[in-house]
């Protein structure tokens, strides 16, 4: 494995991914490449297939077709190693309500060969005051931060965050952005999903807009906003001078709800 390369290599490489459920094709031929050291955002309407895609990349779901390569490894052969290298926050996990913050993190820490200090991680997500509180007594945003802390405690190389800032107050959100930037500054990779365009613009080097299970736009936030011809936007948008990522999103994915 000594094939050290000069140019950046993909931390995540997904090709021709497909996943169908009984009544819906959740992921439909999705290709994706995330470079190492990158902060990559997956955007898309509800039900677009973001969570399904991420969970396949995390080795928690198996795809119907397509290949996934994470940090140069494959789930079929290197599961154990990959589990050590990834930090994962799922969209809807409820951690055990009866344990305290400290106990929860100590448990997660115990699974990893090379883990971070629990106290450090608690400080990183600013849950110091809640250290000995039961998880059941935490607020929604605090639980969300604990979930991120659980993802960090294994000292991962690649962080998957599925809607990490949903339900956070502005302070917590900014604090999480800081945390992500610091993580990235260590040369590590982040893949996240979000419904906040402003967040994607601030945080992500590149974003992919996913709809109906495949990618309909890909590039840096600036590329995407510059590529949008704002004169074609329906009112009231034209009064702006530059398009926002939200304009791009809405013009690409349409204005109808996806959850009906």
């Amino acid at each position: 494995m000594a094939t050290s390369v000069e140019h950046p290599t993909a931390a995540l490489k997904v090709q021709g991914l497909r996943k169908a459920y009984d009544d819906v094709i959740a992921v439909d031929g999705l290709d994706l490449e995330v470079e190492s050291g990158e902060c990559f955002g997956l955007l898309g309407p509800n039900g677009a297939g973001k969570t399904t895609t991420i969970e396949i990349c995390e080795g928690l779901l198996s795809p119907d077709a397509g290949s996934v390569e994470v940090l140069g490894r494959r789930w079929e052969t290197d599961t154990k190693e990959l589990r050590e290298l990834l930090g994962i926050q799922l969209q809807d996990t409820q951690l055990s309500e009866k344990l305290t913050v400290d106990e929860t993190l100590t448990l997660f820490q115990s699974f990893y060969r090379d883990a971070r200090d629990v106290g450090d991680v608690i400080d990183t997500v600013e849950l110091g005051e809640k250290r000995s509180s039961r998880v059941g007594t935490l607020s929604g945003g605090q639980k969300q931060r604990l979930a991120v802390a659980c993802a960090l405690v294994g000292n991962p190389q690649l962080l998957f965050l599925d809607e990490p800032t949903t339900g956070l107050d502005p302070q917590s959100r900014r604090q999480l952005w800081d945390l992500i930037s610091r993580f990235q500054a260590e040369g590590k990779t982040i893949v996240l999903t979000t419904h906040y365009m402003e967040e994607a613009e601030r945080l992500c080097d590149r974003v992919a807009i996913v709809d109906h299970g495949h990618i309909i736009a890909l590039g840096s936030p600036r590329e995407l906003t510059e590529s949008l011809d704002i004169s074609h936007l329906p009112p009231p948008e034209p009064r702006k001078t530059t398009a926002t990522l939200e304009d791009v999103f809405v013009s690409l994915t349409g204005r109808t709800l996806r959850d009906e």
Binding site: M1, A2, T3, S4, V5, E6, H7, P8, T9, A10, A11, D31, E35, S36, G37, E38, C39, L71, G72, R73, Q157, S181, Q184, A185, E186, G187, K188, T189, R202, L203, C204, D205, R206, A208, I215, L218, G219, S220, P221, R222, E223
Partner: peptide, 20 residues
């Protein structure tokens, strides 16, 4: 062509080559 033309706005640290 879904390949990016340029990187995002935030300054990136060193790139880490993979596999190792």
């Amino acid at each position: 062509d879904p390949r990016p033309v340029e990187k995002g706005t935030s300054a990136l640290g060193k790139r880490v080559p993979f596999p190792l």
